[in-house]
Design a protein around this nucleic acid. Sequence first.
DNA 1: GTTTTATCCTAGGAGCCCTAGGAATACAAA
DNA 2: TTTGTATTCCTAGGGCTCCTAGGATAAAAC
Lengths: 197, 197
Amino acid sequence: MARAGLTAERVTLAGAELADEVGLDQVTMSQVARRLGVKDASLYTHVRGLEDLRGRIALLAADEKTIGIAEATSGRAGKDALVAFADAWREYAHKHPGRYMATQTPVQIDPELAAKAAGPRRAVELTYGVLRGYGLTEPDLTDAVRLLRSTFHGFVALEAAGGFAHERSPQQSWVRALDALHTLLEHWPPPQEGDSA
Amino acid sequence: MARAGLTAERVTLAGAELADEVGLDQVTMSQVARRLGVKDASLYTHVRGLEDLRGRIALLAADEKTIGIAEATSGRAGKDALVAFADAWREYAHKHPGRYMATQTPVQIDPELAAKAAGPRRAVELTYGVLRGYGLTEPDLTDAVRLLRSTFHGFVALEAAGGFAHERSPQQSWVRALDALHTLLEHWPPPQEGDSA
DNA sequence: GTTTTATCCTAGGAGCCCTAGGAATACAAA
DNA sequence: TTTGTATTCCTAGGGCTCCTAGGATAAAAC
């Protein structure tokens, strides 16, 4: 019998496609194997198991998302960069809901594998880059990065979970949220009384 | 054999406890049954199946979280209310990670059941309540509600997923994020040029 | 062409979800 | 108290899942 030519990458990609099409928790060894025209046992040569596969999908997604953001923000600055960054983030989540969801799971990722994947680390660096124009200094810079990432992730997560039932379109709220964040970054408040409590 | 005295509520609670202890995706019919000293088949008298159980856990969590927020914010206004609201939200997520994660899954919930659970609806109303003091009007009000909820959810979700690897403590970033949101709500920007694009 | 290495297979155990139908318990009415 | 009814919980079992062990076979190295 001719070989299928599997690799860890092809298995991961099949899993990622499946996740986008039918949902992340429908991604099973058997389903992925079927999609590749192979018996499920054959996958274990390339992937440790289901958990490992999920981790690989998460890393793939992080890389892809980061690349999209890098392309979108390259050459931009200020609010332009902020909006490009945020839109690229949200667009990735919309286009690849299953992959995106994989990044949310607090999964144990093989450290050796995680070291090779530059996605997550570079994503944070890109966020710092966007903030460069706003004149923030540490530790405000780190706090602002975390606030931005929280808001972007939270928005698309709530959106995906059907959390925006009100009639106003999410798109409109998104645009205004970016206006608001831009304003906020321009007027980042100094520490307040009682912050240490 | 003496009966176990199961109800849908007790089954849901057992599932919720299990979710907090070992993770949401370890919540299986068999595990819940074992915890209740019962055979798995017995659960189907009280719960339609695994998906139904997850939906019930999600509704339970939404209710509990809402109650906690309502208690924390009652009698407060302005930034006090905002901080109390946010802290109660985050505290619930920390105390009940499994339950909280259940609220994230875009699960099909039995409409009849959802109607009985006032949690999600009331949570949004409470958010509007917190914003009452800031003098916002529609549609800014809805946009601000969505921004707040996105940020709160995003922060605790990233926190749970280990997204804050930097040395600065999440707690400090959280306090400063609330400072920032308070400032933002006091200076909510008017629509900008290009917002319609 | 032969040897080695890797891939993909079959076989099978254990656990999971869920249904069907039977036994035992709690409850209601006489 | 006794009888009848409803519900709970059980056993049995099918089909799916993950994963391991060991064998056949295709590709690569020599």
